[in-house]
């Protein structure tokens, strides 16, 4: 495993924070491994940053395609009973979920 110590581009606690945001539970070993791997990715990005890119337009999508649009025409809908039958808990034709603290962000 490549060692990134003194000039590490991402800290172990930052990785732990991101994992927490993504609701991922990582072991100490995983946290170490991912910190090193993410640091390597960031190092690679830093290599690109070293280039003079003043005349290069930022790329916002890898494909040279834009305006992929569909007409506003109603299509098929899913069968409610079929969909609800996949849910672990339903009530009044709705999905029943555990209580959620607070409201939608």
């Amino acid at each position: 495993m490549t060692e990134y110590t003194a000039r590490q581009r991402i800290s172990r606690s930052e990785v732990a924070h991101v994992a927490d945001l993504a609701r991922l539970s990582l072991t100490d070993q995983e946290l170490d491994a991912f910190t090193n791997q993410l640091a390597a990715v960031l190092d690679h990005a830093a290599d690109l940053e070293a280039l003079d890119l003043t005349d290069v337009e930022p790329m916002i999508h890898p494909l040279p395609v834009h305006n992929v649009l569909r007409p506003d025409v109603v299509g098929e809908t899913s069968d409610r009973n079929e969909v609800l039958s996949c849910a672990p808990s339903i009530e009044n034709e709705q999905f029943r979920v555990p209580p959620v603290l607070g409201e939608s962000p």
Partner: peptide, 17 residues
């Protein structure tokens, strides 16, 4: 998606994948 944008329908009827 082509699911209808409609207010006040029966729950979970204007849905698709």
């Amino acid at each position: 998606s082509g699911a209808p944008n409609r207010f006040g329908g029966e729950p979970n009827t204007n849905i698709d994948p």
